[in-house]
Design a protein around this nucleic acid. Structure first.
Length: 410
RNA sequence: CCAAUGGAUGGUGCAUAC
C-alpha cells in the first residue's frame, strides 16, 4: 500500500492527476486495500483533474469505511469538492467536520475564490476570524489569488496591504498573485514596488514562479524592456518564462521579436509547450508569416499536441485565417479532434471578414445541425459579416432570429 | 519510522457597412 500510495503522491504533486487516478484503479483491481493516506492522495488527484464523479465515489467509499472523522480526510474532502467547484457539497462536508482548523477554512475560501465567488470567499474569511481561527499566509493568498484571477486587481492589492498590516509576511505565492493583479489593472508603480520587495527578500533566486509572474506583469503592462531585463537576470528559467515574454511581445505589436524568442528558446534547449505554440501562432497570424506558421503546424502534429488540448486547434485555425488562407483554415477545421463553438465562430468570423457571408451562414447553420448552439460571439460574427457587405436586410433578419431564441441583439 | 490534507506564474473566437 505504501509503495502504491507514494507513487500516487508523486504523480499528484507533479500535476499528473490522471496517472494517479489510474494507479488507484489498478490498486483496486489487484485488491490492494487503500489506506487513509491513499484516499487523501486520490481526493487530491480528483480535485486537480476536476474528476467530480470519481471524487464522489471515493467519498462514498470513505463514508463506508468510517474514515470521515479523521481531520486530514475531512479536509481533503472539502478541498476536493471546492476544487471541483461543487461548493454546496464542500459546505456540507465542512459543516459536518468535527473540528474545523485553518486548513478546512482555507480550502473552502480557496474554492469560492477560485470559482469567482469573491464575496463568499471574503465572508468565509471573516467568519473564520470571528471563530478565532487566525488566517495564515496561505489563507490570505487564496483570497488574493481569487481576486487576481477574476479581474479584481484593486481588491487584491488592498488585500496585500492588509496581509502586511496583520503582521503576516507575504511569500512567493502571495507575490505571484499580487503581480498578476498588477498586470490586470496595469498598476505599474505598485508592480515595481512589489518587484523591489521581492528582490530585497531574495525570492527571485529561489523558484520559477515569482520571476515568471514578474515577467508577465511587465509584459502585460507593455514594459517589454523591463520584462526582458527581468528575464535576463533570472537564475532559473523554464518554458513559462519564455512564453510570458513571447506573449508580451505578441500582445504589444512586436510579433517578430516574439518569433525570435520562440527560436531562441529552442536553441537554448527548452521545448515549447501547448501554450508556447498558441502564443507563437498568434504572432504568425499577426505577421502573416505563413511559412513559419506551417512550420509550427507541423511541429504541433509531430508532437501530438492537437489531441492534447482543444485550444491549440483553435489557435491554428486563427493563424490560417489571419494569414488569409481560408481554404487551409477549413482544412484544419475538418481535421480538428474537437470542434467547439469557438472553432465554428472563428471560421464564421473568418469567412465574414473576407466577404464570404454565404459561407459564413453555411457554417452557422451547420454548427446548429450538429447540435452546437451559437453563442453571442457567433451571432456577432455572422452579423458583422452582413454588415461589412452592406446586407442590412440580413442583419435585421438575424436580429429577429436572435430575439426568437431569447437573445438580445443589443 | 517512511508516504498524505489548504494558496500561486504564461495561452484561443466576434467588434457593426452605406
Amino acid at each position: 500500500v505504501v509503495s502504491w500510495t507514494s507513487l500516487m503522491a508523486g504523480y499528484t504533486k507533479y500535476g499528473l492527476g490522471h496517472e494517479a487516478l489510474s494507479l488507484f484503479d489498478q490498486m483496486q483491481l489487484l485488491s490492494v486495500a487503500p489506506s487513509t493516506v491513499t484516499f487523501v492522495c486520490t481526493l487530491k488527484a480528483c480535485g486537480n483533474t476536476r474528476a467530480t464523479k470519481k471524487g464522489q465515489e471515493i467519498h462514498d467509499e470513505i463514508e463506508k469505511r468510517g474514515f470521515v472523522d479523521l481531520d486530514v480526510v475531512g479536509n481533503a474532502l472539502v478541498d476536493m469538492y471546492a476544487s471541483c467547484g461543487l461548493l454546496v457539497e464542500a459546505e456540507e462536508v465542512f459543516d459536518k467536520l468535527p473540528a474545523k482548523d485553518m486548513i478546512s477554512w482555507t480550502a473552502l475560501i480557496a474554492g469560492y475564490a477560485k470559482h469567482g465567488h469573491s464575496e463568499e470567499a471574503l465572508s468565509c474569511f471573516e467568519q473564520m476570524k470571528s471563530e478565532g481561527v487566525i488566517p495564515d499566509v496561505v489563507s490570505w493568498s487564496a483570497l488574493i489569488a481569487g481576486y487576481a484571477m477574476h479581474n479584481c486587481g484593486e481588491e487584491a492589492l488592498i488585500c496585500l496591504e492588509e496581509v502586511k498590516q496583520a503582521g503576516v509576511s507575504p511569500d512567493a505565492v502571495t507575490y505571484a498573485s499580487s503581480l498578476k493583479a498588477c498586470g490586470g489593472v496595469r498598476a505599474i508603480e505598485k508592480g515595481q514596488e512589489i518587484h523591489a520587495e521581492i528582490a530585497q527578500k531574495g525570492l527571485l533566486e529561489r523558484d520559477f514562479v515569482v520571476g515568471n509572474a514578474l515577467i508577465d506583469m511587465y509584459a502585460t503592462c507593455g514594459l517589454l524592456f523591463e520584462a526582458q531585463d527581468v528575464f535576463g537576470k533570472l537564475l532559473v528559467r523554464d518554458a513559462v518564462s519564455w512564453t510570458s515574454l513571447i506573449a508580451g511581445y505578441t500582445k504589444h505589436g512586436c510579433a517578430e521579436e516574439a518569433l525570435n524568442c520562440f527560436g531562441k528558446m529552442q536553441m537554448e534547449g527548452f521545448s515549447p509547450d501547448v501554450v508556447t505554440f498558441i502564443c507563437s501562432l498568434k504572432a504568425c497570424g499577426i505577421m502573416g508569416a505563413i511559412e513559419k506558421g506551417q512550420e509550427l503546424h507541423e511541429a504541433i502534429i509531430r508532437n501530438g499536441l492537437l489531441e492534447k488540448d482543444v485550444l491549440i486547434g483553435n489557435a491554428l485555425l486563427d493563424m490560417y485565417i489571419d494569414c488569409g488562407l481560408l481554404a487551409k483554415a477549413h482544412e484544419v477545421f475538418d481535421k480538428l479532434p474537437v470542434q467547439d463553438a469557438v472553432s465554428w465562430t472563428a471560421l464564421i468570423a473568418g469567412y465574414a471578414k473576407y466577404g464570404c457571408s454565404e459561407e459564413a451562414l453555411g457554417c452557422f447553420e451547420r454548427m446548429q445541425l450538429i447540435g452546437i448552439s451559437p453563442d453571442a460571439f457567433s451571432w456577432n460574427a455572422l452579423v458583422a459579416g452582413y454588415a461589412r457587405q452592406g446586407e442590412s436586410e440580413n442583419v435585421f433578419h438575424a436580429f429577429d432570429r436572435m430575439r426568437g431564441e431569447g437573445m438580445d441583439p443589443s
